[in-house]
Amino acid sequence: MTLEIPQLHIKNMVCPRCVMVVRQAFEQIGVEPLSVDLGEVKLKKELSGDELKQLDDLLAKNGFERIDDRKVQLLEKIKTLVIDTIHHRDPYDTNIQWSAYLSDQLHYDYNYLSSLFSGMAGITLEQYIIRQKMEKVKEFLFYDELSVKEIAYKMGFSSVAHLSNQFKKIIGLSPTEFKKSIQHTQSRKSLDQII
């Protein structure tokens, strides 16, 4: 007989700093978690009602939220996996097959994941992935360390033209126009706000 490890799912955890902030929230209520990962916290024991209330208050102050609904948890896992893969893995796997990758990581059929995502997020999973990629492209352009050709290759686009078309469609400017734009410093978005 195996004991199930209590877990909490946390919305809006998209980066290593988020993990640190959530870990600190647990420390503030006197609870030491077994592990804190993007979107998920494993605990030694279930939290009391009072501990959950304190935790919810601390999380809310930092822009996080505890999730109870299973479909919402799965939606957040999808988002977290896409964000982590695109924004925090170096080098980015340019040959990634998203359908197989997400199915393998989350242990659900891709059609189910895609349908759930579309129904709950209001855009398709493919559109979400493209939007996250475009945000990463904006970051590369902002820091001006790579050419557009290098960015296209690094992000898995078949050509500069393919990247440029997608970028213009989502952002409204070509990568070159964006680079020249004075407003580019104000056009980056928080990763958890991209939909």
Rank of each mutant, 00 (worst) to 15 (best):
P33G: 07
L34V: 15
D37W: 04
G39V: 00
G39K: 00
V41A: 02
K42A: 12
L43D: 01
K44G: 13
L47P: 00
L47E: 09
G49Y: 04
G49I: 12
E51Q: 13
Q54R: 15
D56V: 06
D57T: 14
D57W: 03
D57N: 14
D57Q: 15
L59V: 05
A60W: 11
K61M: 14
G63Q: 04
R70I: 15
K71P: 07
K71A: 15
L74P: 01
E76R: 03
L81Q: 05
I83M: 04
D84Y: 03
H87G: 01
H88I: 00
R89D: 12
R89P: 04
D90C: 05
P91A: 05
P91M: 09
Y92D: 10
T94S: 10
Q97P: 01
Q97M: 12
W98S: 01
Y101S: 05
L102W: 02
S103C: 11
Y110L: 02
N111E: 14
Y112D: 09
Y112Q: 08
L113S: 02
L113A: 07
G119Q: 11
M120G: 06
G122F: 03
E126A: 12
E126I: 12
I129R: 05
I130D: 09
R131A: 06
Q132W: 09
Q132M: 13
M134G: 00
K136Q: 11
E139S: 12
F140I: 04
L141Y: 02
L141E: 00
Y143P: 04
D144T: 06
S147C: 08
V148D: 08
V148M: 02
I151C: 08
Y153E: 15
Y153I: 15
Y153H: 14
K154C: 07
K154N: 10
S159K: 03
